[in-house]
């Protein structure tokens, strides 16, 4: 690992002021540190944001759950409030990586990174999340732009993620047996008006499957999507799963999610 400067920011303002084209925020470090160790990324400055009080914590209102960006996965999975308001969100957090990763990794780091097989992006899409940054509010649907790409501008800091509490929801992941990231993860959320079927792992970026959403909005039963033949042409193929298998898994996991709602 190459030498770098370490800064600990005391508030969002200082953090974004320190940011430059050769810096990264340091939240859990679960992505940043390994990529630096492997020489895949080099930064001149790491700006630690874990000590910014405002970025941690969980607030629940009648309609939404707001989670500070530096909140760790373990805190989300253990939170009684989250368990009560959106149990599927708590179980999603519980299924990320392993205890070491959950004890350090943060929700903000996860969505800023936007790994195509990360779990949280699907929650943001399914639960109509709003991403609060130090500059603005961004709807989840407009936040995830592509593989490892988001709407964040350089130096823009996520402060919190606000999830809409659904009527019912479930997240079903078919994990990569080695890394335990999602080969396919499907987050189904039934809101008052409509149903979201957010899919992660299958394509280069998380997306809301319109076809399944429509079918389920009409009839919220797994039978309405059973046997659906999804187009696999844009799906990922790697040594763990072919596009064809992923396409099948998307439907299977969606059905499981509906049944679990």
């Amino acid at each position: 690992m190459k030498d770098f400067n370490y800064h600990s920011a005391k508030d969002s303002k200082e953090a974004s002021k320190l940011a430059s084209s050769s810096s990264a925020f340091l939240a859990g470090g679960m992505t940043t540190i390994p990529s630096m160790k492997l020489g895949l990324a080099t930064y001149k400055d790491l700006i630690d944001i874990k000590n910014i009080k405002k970025l941690s914590g969980i607030k629940v209102s009648g309609k939404s759950v707001t989670i500070g960006a530096a909140t760790k996965h373990v805190e989300v999975s253990n939170s009684k409030d989250v368990k009560k308001a959106i149990p599927s969100l708590s179980s999603l957090a519980e299924g990320i990586g392993d205890p070491q990763v959950r004890n350090r990794g943060t929700i903000g780091g996860s969505i800023a990174n936007n790994d195509p097989s990360a779990d949280y992006p699907s929650a943001c899409i399914a639960l109509n999340a709003t991403i609060h940054t130090n500059e603005r509010k961004i709807e989840a649907a407009k936040f995830f732009k592509g593989m490892f790409e988001t709407a964040l501008k350089k130096g823009e800091l996520i402060e919190a993620i606000e999830f809409q509490i659904p009527e019912k929801s479930s997240y079903q992941k078919h994990p990569n047996p080695a890394s335990r990231y999602a080969i396919v993860g499907v987050y189904v959320a039934k809101h008052k008006g409509d149903v979201n079927v957010a899919v992660t792992g299958a394509k280069s970026c998380v997306y809301n499957d319109k076809e399944m959403s429509k079918a389920l909005s009409g009839n919220f039963s797994s039978s309405s999507i059973d046997g659906m033949d999804l187009d696999s042409s844009e799906m990922n193929t790697d040594m763990h799963a072919s596009a064809e298998f992923r396409a099948s898994l998307v439907v299977t996991q969606a059905k499981k999610a509906v049944d679990a709602c």
Binding site: N176, P177, A178, S179, Y181, M239, H240
Partner: peptide, 22 residues
Amino acid sequence: YENAEYDETGQLMTGSYMDYTM
């Protein structure tokens, strides 16, 4: 679970725990 896989150029495809299933 476990499998060590090389591609046809001889690169180890399962060179870390992200891909080699322990």
